[in-house]
Write a protein that binds this DNA or RNA. Structure first.
Lengths: 177, 177
DNA sequence: GAAGATTGTTGTTGACGACAACAATTGTTG
DNA sequence: CAACAATTGTTGTCGTCAACAACAATCTTC
């Protein structure tokens, strides 16, 4: 229930005012409020990977949250469930390190998932400090559904940037997974 | 004074325990705490663009923040300064829409930048509701320096993922800028 | 001129990353 | 084996950021 619609939806309508595609210098007096967004120069920003990546990441998370809105699962929760599902018995530290999540933050994530009875913390037999994390039966069937919805989301991504571009992207960023 | 160090810094040292690169199934009893991260299966996560993009975005922002740590400029501040510099006289709404920032959030960003005398809000002559945003003289010279540091950061990105991959990435995500 | 929209502002909520401190429990070493 | 160091889960704090809601001042529009 936190799903937001789609992209910032840059102001349309107002069909006049042909953008004079030339100079990117600003300083055109009348540029006050009726500006078409693409008239506004990004300047150096256009050459920064971080800017594009950030905007893309926001779009992708919004789509994920919306697509899995009915089951109320956010990207981080999905990643935690997936890793536990694929590696039952992991400790919280191990999950946190693997996903790059603060172990303090994982505590709350697991509290929530445990309350929803998707995950259970069992005391480890070998190290009484740590918890062995497992999916519950309900967690396993739920995850299967989440996976289907996540695949649907992934198709949205493919449509947005192109199937081949998506694969190329995954390949380029494989070092960060 | 908000700069955080670098990456999550997963525990290194401890030179023993050769990871047995085979199965990715988990369920190996001894897998409790001494796990090498790459033994832990990501499962479906590996096929999700969002996961990789998110991890990459975090890395890139951390490097940006660190590289521009000396001048205390964060990515969002840099983007705001850049857009105002390239389009003097813009209203806050226009900047917010162009960068996909909440206009409520831009208020605080500008408060900070105005306090540092990098930006000034002038009352618009044509619309007394809105502010015409300009860089101060100090803002212009400062931005030139920020740009040099940002270029250095961008070189870090190129080293990290490869020069061609960076360009390919910019191309793939050009729709989001 | 009245109704409705826009602009900047303030404030709240929640997700998230980074830290610091702590108790319980290993491990390590003299 | 006992003292000390390190690890694990936990709690709490702080700051960033996106999303909303409400408001006064100011256009727009009819």
């Amino acid at each position: 229930m936190a799903g937001n619609s789609q992209m910032p939806r840059t102001a349309k309508s107002r069909a006049s005012a042909r953008p004079r595609a030339g100079r990117t210098q600003g300083r055109n007096g009348s540029t006050q409020s009726g500006v078409m967004d693409d008239e506004i120069a990004l300047d150096a920003l256009a050459g920064h990977a971080g800017y594009a990546v950030r905007r893309f990441q926001i779009w992708i998370f919004q789509d994920f949250i919306r697509t899995l809105g009915a089951v109320d699962i956010r990207p981080t929760q999905y990643s935690v469930l997936t890793v536990i599902g694929a590696n039952p018995g992991l400790s919280q530290m191990a999950v946190a390190k693997r996903l790059g999540i603060e172990r303090a933050r994982l505590v709350h994530l697991l509290d929530s998932l445990e309350q929803r009875e998707l995950v259970s913390r069992l005391r480890s037999a070998t190290d009484r400090r740590s918890h062995a994390l497992h999916l519950t039966a309900r967690g396993r069937t739920a995850l299967a559904q989440f996976r289907r919805l996540a695949a649907e989301h992934e198709r949205h991504v493919a449509v947005k940037i192109g199937k081949e571009n998506r694969e190329r992207l995954l390949q380029i960023l494989s070092a960060f997974t």
